[in-house]
């Protein structure tokens, strides 16, 4: 059997439009989930290093709970599980306003946030404790010490592993197709079904993911160099 390649299916008909929409949805979904994940990650990562035990325990609970359940289950949970618990009007409103999209954002955000918090915690723990003590000794509160000293240093140190988590987030966003979010993988499959050209459609999808990931990696390494701590990690990037 001879497979007949027909790459033109990608730009004829509705394919291009579908792929573009999928790309936009993937970007929106990933960007919102990323913001949520970074906020939760910083919060939980920082709380895990404080001396007050109840806050530490809450953060441990969040991390262990969310990173140990498959993402797919979380998607189902937020999409099928949570809305029925809400009042009728809220449910209706949600389903008229892309409930599946917001369920995906939350699922992806809290899941990735739990993973990111581990990275952030490791970054904080790599800073000598005396830096924290020096901050307190000059009269800063614990909150100020974290906000002005500990986190700014930690975040600069952890750009490479954060890049990893960010790429994982983007790739994991494809799981949202299971709750029928019309993101890139969803649209790729639609093109495939509609044109019966699987290789072409999947190649297009693959390349778009690849380009996105390379783009993110580039931006992150720029950020790393831009915010490098002079004399500490500047040399690595400058080489």
């Amino acid at each position: 059997m001879q497979y007949q390649f027909k790459w033109s299916v990608l730009w004829s008909g509705q394919s291009a439009g579908w792929l573009l929409q999928g790309l936009i949805t993937t970007l929106e979904l990933s960007a919102l989930a990323w913001i949520l994940a970074v906020c939760l990650g910083i919060l939980a990562g920082a709380l895990r290093t404080v001396t007050f035990a109840p806050l530490r325990a809450a953060a441990v609970f969040y991390v262990e709970f969310f990173r140990n359940v498959p993402l797919l289950v979380w998607m189902f949970f937020w999409y099928f599980g949570v809305p029925p618990l809400l009042p009728r009007v809220v449910q209706d409103w949600l389903f008229n306003h892309g409930a599946e999209f917001w369920a995906a954002v939350i699922a992806l955000g809290v899941y990735t946030g739990a993973r990111m918090s581990e990275v952030i915690r490791a970054g904080i723990l790599s800073i000598p404790r005396t830096q924290f003590e020096a901050s307190l000794a000059m009269g800063l509160t614990v909150g100020q010490a974290y906000r002005l000293i500990i986190l700014p240093i930690a975040l600069r140190l952890i750009v490479p592993p954060m890049t990893n988590e960010s790429l994982n987030l983007l790739k994991n966003s494809s799981v949202a197709l299971t709750i029928s979010v019309a993101e890139l993988t969803f649209q790729t499959r639609q093109v495939e079904t509609y044109t019966a050209k699987a290789i072409e459609a999947l190649t297009a999808g693959t390349l778009i993911y690849l380009v996105l990931c390379l783009g993110i990696a580039t931006v992150m390494s720029r950020l790393e160099r831009r915010f490098a701590i002079p004399g500490l990690i500047a040399r690595v990037g400058a080489g």
Binding site: P128, Q131, E133, A134, L136, A137, M138, G139, I229
Partner: peptide
């Protein structure tokens, strides 16, 4: 009020502890 007390007491450490960023 710890912060208030500490503003009146300066401390210098063995390891300098300047903020690198």
């Amino acid at each position: 009020n710890l912060a208030k007390l500490r503003t009146r007491v300066g401390m210098v450490f063995q390891q300098f502890n300047l903020f690198a960023h």
